[in-house]
């Protein structure tokens, strides 16, 4: 009996020492959306790798695309008294309550990637993400230069109503509106998928008699553009030569197409964004409290010339 008490005392003591050593590092809870597509798993992996580099004790929670899992994860982070919480929100609504709980516990919340819709903006410190609108503008600016401001464009939209689809479209349109001879002549949703992009481009090819008079294809993501490239090749057209191909994401498969000359430009949506997110969090914890409500991660246009 006595020896067992001794033993539990040792275990308890060891536990306290372990807890103390963990507490010396910064502990951050990160609630991720899930692992859909190619981009998000790469984003998750980068967050974990960068955390190791920065010496951060990262508690990673995958919400598997469900807001209720995400709310549970955030409440668990609050209970564990982490130093800061990063949320990549599944949806924009329904955040007021849990963010108030975090504030009451004095734990700062940072948003990564998507936005939230809360009445009281002081419930989170800042949102750190790429600017979809800027990506659209960059694609439009590249195309305006490449086509000398004269271009009939077919557009492959992302999933109808999704934030990247809306903002990339708006950004792109705001730039081509500056050029009287640039206009979108066909626009349809390819649901961000290769299959969708291929089907839509097939229909465009038929509707425009082999893309006659079309100078460019703008796709809201690379996957749809990859499908469009296949559809054009199967119809005996030469993507990248007959028609300028510009899209957003810069996924590995698009790099291959840029090298082969089947695509002309892709705006990068960075997945390695831990190096933009953690410094904001760490500086805030050290005392820099005045951040704009949106810290934008810069975008970059890659062309065939870059990848050679």
């Amino acid at each position: 009996m006595r020896s067992r008490n001794w033993l539990s005392g040792i275990v308890l003591g060891a536990g306290m020492v372990f807890a103390a050593s963990a507490a010396s590092a910064v502990t951050i809870g990160f609630s991720q959306v899930g692992d859909e597509g190619d981009w998000r798993p790469a984003f998750s992996k980068d967050m974990q790798d960068e955390a190791k580099k920065e010496g951060i004790d990262l508690k990673f929670a995958d919400a598997q695309g469900k807001e209720e899992n995400q709310l549970k994860a955030v409440r668990a982070f609050i209970a564990q008294r982490v130093d800061a919480i990063i949320i990549a929100p599944v949806v924009v609504t329904g955040w007021d309550q849990v963010l108030k709980e975090a504030k009451a516990a004095n734990i700062p919340v940072f948003l990564a990637d998507r936005d939230v819709d809360v009445a009281d903006k002081s419930l989170y410190v800042t949102r750190i993400s790429a600017d979809f609108n800027l990506e659209g503008r960059l694609a439009g600016a590249w195309l305006a230069a490449a086509s000398k401001g004269r271009c009939n464009i077919v557009e492959l939209q992302g999933t109808t109503g999704s934030a990247p689809a809306i903002e990339r479209k708006k950004g792109f349109e705001s730039v081509i509106a500056l050029f009287p001879d640039m206009k979108i002549v066909k626009s349809q949703s390819g649901d961000f998928t290769t299959d969708g992009g291929k089907k839509v481009m097939e229909a465009f090819i038929k509707a425009t008699d082999g893309l006659k008079g079309i100078c460019a294809s703008f796709a809201h993501n690379d996957n749809m553009q990859l499908g469009a490239i296949q559809a054009m090749k199967e119809a005996g057209l030469h993507p990248g030569k007959d028609v300028l191909m510009v899209s957003v994401d810069y996924v590995p498969a698009m790099v291959t197409e840029l090298k082969a000359g089947d695509a002309n430009a892709s705006v990068e949506l960075r997945s390695a964004i831990g190096k933009y997110i953690y410094p904001v969090v760490l500086e805030y914890l050290k005392g820099k409290k005045d951040w704009p409500k949106w810290v934008k991660i810069p975008s970059d246009v890659h062309t065939a010339a870059d990848v050679k």
Partner: peptide
């Protein structure tokens, strides 16, 4: 489906 894609109806 094909005619909707051809028609130019807004995707919404």
């Amino acid at each position: 489906t094909t005619s909707i894609l051809m028609s130019g109806v807004p995707p919404e």
